[in-house]
Design a protein around this nucleic acid. Structure first.
Lengths: 126, 126
DNA sequence: ATATTTACTGCAACTAAGTTGCGTTAAACG
DNA sequence: CGTTTAACGCAACTTAGTTGCAGTAAATAT
């Protein structure tokens, strides 16, 4: 049901995503903010921000949860199904604007696609 | 370092994948075989069968580990990077022969791609 | 066929990400 | 300022997967 009150904790988390355009894992946030708030709070707020269409989540390598800002989503619909790129050197995860074409598959209907690419990122490439 | 001895447990696990062409999650195998072997053994054998190039693994929804037979892989190289399809109705997961084209991404080098499609499968479609 | 070696197994205890219940705190609003 | 209740912190839990170690059983040698 999304965020109802703009608490101190909510503001702190929003700031984290404002400062950084890359995706952030729940684990990273828990480490980074453990003096400021409890991990339960972090998970609950992330959940709600996702419901609100402010963040979207996906699973990185190891099946751990990552969050990144949405662009143009609402609480009604998430329409930012894009691939994510995780750098195997520095671990950074970005959203890729690139669209990957999912071909039609006979007798199946694809609703969701989760694409995680792994390799070497811009910064680590040089 | 792969399988060295063809034990009873190894044979039982190989049979599971022989009988079924779809992917099987580690959790399912643990449930299904808990009278025949310990979960530690299951995880260890699956690991080794993957090293051997007999199985490949990937993460399903929830980040849980799934395994499926390889076709034409060796202990040197896995070259069956294909998309996987998980049915949201029955939960079944298949390997898709379809190739999905990963476009070149400026200043990044893609090494691995993990594509999980979710939707409605053949059987649940009708 | 029996003995020896050591890879493999089972068990119990652990790790770590994420969840739940509940009593307390602090936003929001009259 | 007082009341309401959403949100918080804490501790305890859940569960997938891992680790260490002593005992078992494949494979190989005798």
């Amino acid at each position: 049901m999304g965020i109802l009150r703009k608490t101190k904790s909510v503001k702190i988390l929003l700031d984290e995503f404002e400062e950084q355009s890359t995706a952030i894992s729940a684990i990273t946030l828990i480490e980074r903010l453990h003096l400021k708030m409890n991990k339960t709070t972090i998970y609950r707020i992330l959940d709600k921000l996702e419901d609100d269409g402010f963040l979207h989540s996906f699973l990185g390598k190891n099946g751990h949860k990552w969050y990144a800002k949405c662009s143009g989503c609402s609480s009604e619909e998430h329409h930012d199904i894009h691939p994510h790129f995780q750098c195997l050197d520095c671990g950074k995860v970005d959203c890729l604007p690139t669209d990957i074409l999912i071909p039609d598959i006979p007798n199946r209907k694809v609703h969701v696609s989760q694409i995680l690419l792994q390799g070497t990122c811009e910064a680590c490439f040089n």
